[in-house]
């Protein structure tokens, strides 16, 4: 057997997870609309995490993936099943085999699969003859190949895949409200990968970013990647809130604030320059960049307090009921 989903094309523009989900769900007709809408509704646009040394991994280190991605997909009303773990665990060979089967049956139904390459990408085909999966990372036009036997093996020691199922309709206003609550939670939670505290989330991520830039001994590629991802996300949020005007006055005001923030992005971009063919933070403009980021943090903080006012008006069972999952993954 073999399957090759022609219509599934991933393009890196946003976070790799958002790009993957967008490619899969639009191809499967489970989502319609621009990418910023998906990024906003899932709360992915609001996720912002920074490692102390501004490592490139910061961008996808916004939490324990299962715990972050499940509520994201829940808010689209879509059933999702994921599995993940550490390759070194003794049960990995079994779960690897199960994963290979699950990925193939999803592709048989014509739906692509999210896969940690790293970073996140999509599996859009398989061939039993060669025992391979076809994978896109969103950067290269060419599909990569992963052998069934190598599924999940990569330098990060984590494996992860996620499949999607049926869908229920959720009222637009309910989805927007939930996305604001996901945003509030991300903004207010300083550490999403405890017990580690070297990666900060939300409001504290600004502090880590500015401190990292100030100290100077940061990862040059990581710094640019974090900033690019940050600027893209803020543009997404602005566009997302722009579409959601007229429901709550506080949200209209939050849109204005994100509009101001987005207007600062060209100046932030000016603080990055090409150096030997690679974009780098212009070290002579670090102070200016920090100043811009400090203003941006203030704007975002105000926007989030508008979100809080909206949220407070409606009961929030999801966050007032103690769950029996989440917060930490198995050890």
């Amino acid at each position: 057997m073999s399957v090759f989903l022609q219509d599934l094309v991933m393009k890196r523009e946003s976070k790799s997870y958002t790009d993957s989900v967008y490619a899969i769900l639009t191809a499967a007709n489970l989502f319609q609309g621009p990418k910023y809408l998906l990024s906003g509704l899932t709360g992915m646009a609001f996720k912002f995490s920074v490692h102390q040394q501004l490592l490139p991994m910061s961008v996808s280190a916004y939490g324990q993936w299962g715990n972050e991605h499940k509520p994201a997909i829940d808010n689209l009303g879509i059933l999702t099943i994921f599995d993940a773990g550490r390759v070194r665990h003794h049960t990995f060979p079994y779960y690897q085999q199960e994963a290979v089967n699950a990925v193939k049956s999803s592709l048989d139904c014509g739906i692509g699969v999210v896969y940690w390459i790293p970073e996140f990408g999509v599996i859009h085909g398989y061939d039993d003859g060669d025992r391979v999966f076809y994978i896109q990372d969103g950067c290269s036009e060419e599909s990569q190949i992963v052998l069934y036997d190598n599924f999940g093996l990569n330098f990060t020691t984590f494996w992860y895949y996620q499949v999607f199922g049926d869908k229920v309709d959720i009222a637009r206003q309910d989805m927007i409200l939930e996305s604001l609550r996901l945003a509030i939670l991300d903004w207010e939670t300083p550490f999403r990968t405890l017990p580690n505290t070297d990666i900060a989330s939300g409001k504290l991520a600004y502090v880590y970013l500015c401190q990292g830039l100030k100290q100077g001994s940061f990862n040059t590629h990581g710094a640019v990647y974090i900033l690019d991802s940050y600027m893209t996300a803020r543009t997404e949020i602005r566009d997302y809130l722009g579409d959601a005007q007229g429901i709550w006055t506080e949200l209209d005001e939050a849109y204005q604030l994100y509009g101001l923030l987005a207007a600062m992005i060209p100046r932030m971009n000016d603080c990055i320059r090409a150096h030997r063919g690679e974009r780098q933070v212009d070290l002579s403009r670090v102070d200016e960049l920090i100043e811009l980021l400090t203003q941006a943090e203030l704007l975002e903080d105000q926007a989030i307090s508008h979100f809080r006012h909206i949220s407070a008006r409606y009961p929030d069972l999801k966050r007032t009921t103690i769950p029996r999952w989440g917060s930490h993954t198995p050890r």
Binding site: D74, G77, I78, L79, I81, H90, T91, Y94, Y95, E98, G165, D166, K167, V168, I170, D174, L317, K318, T321, P323, R324, W325
Partner: peptide, 18 residues
């Protein structure tokens, strides 16, 4: 050494029927 599948959630979530 037992492998397993599991799932959990709130019944008040819209996706519960799925």
């Amino acid at each position: 050494g037992i492998t397993a599948s599991q799932a959990a959630g709130f019944q008040f979530e819209p996706t519960f029927p799925l």
